[in-house]
């Protein structure tokens, strides 16, 4: 991104830029290392390892996507399952219509979900705070009703999806999906860093603190909000795109699932919403815990735990784990 002309006006200094560059490189390196690690560890533990890693990484992506809007600008999106499902059903539709490969479906899913995100961005013109959140919830239910009544993509009964043949260097299709998800999550985190430390992030933070004051000070609020809602929607759509191939049978209940709706909000809030690493920490921690718990206890019980943790964190530690770590560091100084 060419930022030269904004450098002076928006307070992004050379040091900030250099710091951002280093962070980006480190995340990219970490992502690639993690993909390699997945392959190495997966060799010994088999496909179940990929199945579990895919879900955790999908939540890293979703939590990061949610945070780009919710964390940075303070606009709470309750409809994340809707965006995810849009991505999911874009893949199904393109697969049915043109037999499109995953590499085409992912960007297409992102674009469709991004456009819906853009729409919600325009809604935010008139709706602030709570009303925006309720509108996103409304949007998710409308999308679900649409899908339930659209028999071409399976309707209420759902649809079976055949995985393509595994090709190239991959041992199995789940392995491919896990690595694709790992790379997408890494890219999303880098996007979040770029947004957070550029004029967009600073502008959004100003909106979060006081939208009216920010507008009065000349912050281009509509443009910023549109960027954030579109980007957030795009990333959520991307997260949903490989999902049909992952579970191979999609119905409205699994695409618009409870687990996605609650985790996408709980993970950033528990991790901490102000920085890019809060959602990552939250998603890894909660995601891995849930994977372990699903094996040992029921999946309903582990959603219950997420709900309880969310309520506790919101009530007691509103700045999440990031906030707790910061407080701990400051108290030691």
């Amino acid at each position: 991104m060419n930022m030269d002309h904004t450098t002076v006006t928006s307070g992004v200094t050379q040091t900030d830029k250099r710091r951002r560059r280093t962070t980006e490189l480190m995340i990219a390196a970490a992502g690639i290392l993690l993909s390699l690690l997945l392959i190495v560890v997966g060799r010994t533990y088999g496909d179940y390892f990929y199945v579990a890693s895919y879900v955790v990484l999908q939540f890293v992506l979703l939590a990061t996507a949610w945070n780009v809007l919710g964390g940075y600008s303070g606009y709470v999106n309750f409809g994340s399952a809707g965006f995810f499902a849009v991505g999911c059903y874009t893949t199904i539709l393109l697969g049915k219509l043109f037999d499109a490969p995953l590499a085409v479906c992912v960007p297409a899913a992102g674009i469709v979900a991004g456009l819906i995100g853009l729409g919600t961005g325009y809604l935010s013109l008139r709706l602030r705070g709570v009303f925006f959140s309720i509108a996103t919830l409304a949007l998710a239910v409308m999308l679900q009703t649409l899908i339930v009544n659209w028999s071409y993509v399976g309707g209420a009964r759902g649809v079976y999806v055949l995985r393509p043949d595994t090709s190239g260097p991959f041992d199995s299709y789940v392995q491919l999906l896990a690595i694709v998800m790992c790379l997408m999550a890494t890219a999303a985190v880098i996007v979040a860093v770029v947004v957070e430390r550029s004029w967009i992030g600073f502008g959004l933070a100003a909106l979060r603190d006081d939208e009216t004051a920010a507008e009065a000070a000349g912050v281009p609020s509509l443009r910023l909000k549109l960027i954030a809602t579109t980007l957030s929607g795009f990333l959520m759509g991307v997260a949903g795109a490989p999902f049909p191939y992952y579970i191979t049978y999609v119905d409205p209940a699994s695409a618009f699932s409870l687990a996605i709706a609650i985790n996408t909000i709980a993970m950033p809030l528990i991790g901490g919403t102000a920085t890019w690493w809060g959602p990552v920490v939250g998603a890894l921690l909660l995601g891995i815990t849930q994977q372990v718990l699903t094996v040992t206890i029921s999946s309903a019980a582990n959603l219950l735990i997420v709900g309880v943790l969310l309520v506790i964190f919101v009530a007691v530690a509103p700045n999440g784990i990031v906030g707790l770590v910061r407080k701990f560091r400051e108290s030691r100084r």
Partner: peptide
């Protein structure tokens, strides 16, 4: 600071009750 936190709080309660 009610709007975001309050929403998330009740959202959590909603799910706790439902899953319970």
């Amino acid at each position: 600071d009610e709007s975001l936190q309050g929403l998330a709080f009740f959202f959590g309660i909603l799910f706790i009750v439902e899953i319970g």
